[in-house]
Amino acid sequence: MFVTGYIMTVGLFIPCYVNQFYPDAAKATLQLLQKLGVEVVYPAKQTCCGQPMANSGFAHLTSDCDALFIQNFAEFDYIVAPSASCVLHVKDHLHSAENEGKAEGIRGKIYELVEFLTDVLKIEKLDAVFPHKVGIHHSCHGLRGLYLSQMTELNAAPFSKPQQLLNMVSGLEQVSLDRPDECCGFGGTFCVAEEAVSVKMGKDRVTDHSKNGAEYITSSDLSCLMHLEGILHRNKSKVKVVHIAEILNATV
């Protein structure tokens, strides 16, 4: 990006619940991108990608939401969000009757933070320090939707973009899990509509991390982490959740 002297401008998309509950992850995303020399703008009028409605069967109600998204983000070089799930939704489902060209443009230039760092900025080192044992929770939308890592279901060469980034963080020790890419059970409205199954799935994920010695569970999806954190807090566990942006932006 510096070769031509042109500094790209990134539109920062902060999903609704991240804005409300996890502003620190949003700040870390912003600061990290700025540190890496990217111009970042946060359009103030943004709301949501519409995924909660679409995944519940109400995709036909998301057109206003889509129009607003296009209005907010069409002009940027890239759009980056610290949420694999929302990015996947936009990539797969953002459309517009009036502005399909712009919708298509957005679908092609929206990135989840991790893949933006590994695939667009192609960073090879980071000044980050996080002296803790960390377990990675692969969100399903990040894993099987955006291919941030290789899924265990396939007979294909392994790779992992979040792992690649965490390897650049000094002091950080990654723990290995019994089931490295099992779903946590959040699933949008599933988390309340199928409360019993959702919680059982979450409890089992948490146990896998804690029994393998993780102090922190990290992910590129805060929706998963919010669900896991709710279970950890209820059970007074010492294990904490942290968005991957906060680790990559951590200096002490």
């Binding site: 902060i14 804005n19 409300q20 996890y22 502003p23 946060y42 954190e229 709710g230 807090h233």
Partner: peptide, 15 residues
Amino acid sequence: WYKQREMPEGPKESF
């Protein structure tokens, strides 16, 4: 949500 999970702690201000 609250049956078996805590709510996230609401921060003082949104992002």
